[in-house]
Amino acid sequence: MTLSKEFEVIDYTSDVKIRAYGRNIEELFENSARGMFSLIGKNKKFRLNNIDKIFIIKIKGASYEELLVSWLEKLLFYHETKKILFFDFKIISFFPDKNEADINPEYSLEAKASGERIDLKKHEILTHIKGPTYHNLNIIQDIKNEIFEVNIIFDV
């Protein structure tokens, strides 16, 4: 099965909202990050990226939602402090998987994020994101299509 879209940007008066999709929770996390960075910046011209900055991210949380917020926050942190525009995201491991989630209260993930050092000649910075919010943040699963989906509101 293929996803018809990875994420979409939704109208929201004061801030910015994205809806991300994934065939599994890993893909949902990857696409949430993709959605966030589509708001942050882009390559000015279409060309192959020279993605040479790679970060391994490990985080913990008390729920999938909290883990999602921490994941996005960590990426924002590296974006700002290391001046990186991220283009590629890969969840390496995820604990627990959705079958054991109910019995294990400690969630964690390990992921790889790759990007380029920001160069204003090459990149356009679109939006400065202050942070992801918890407002109406619920990861839901469409049982019929087995698609995970989440709405995330960012303060910009």
């Binding site: 940007v9 939704i10 109208d11 929201y12 008066t13 004061s14 910015v16 939006t127 910009v156």
Partner: peptide, 8 residues
């Protein structure tokens, strides 16, 4: 106060 969302 905003009238239009940033996207619109």
């Amino acid at each position: 106060g905003r009238l239009l969302s940033r996207t619109s």
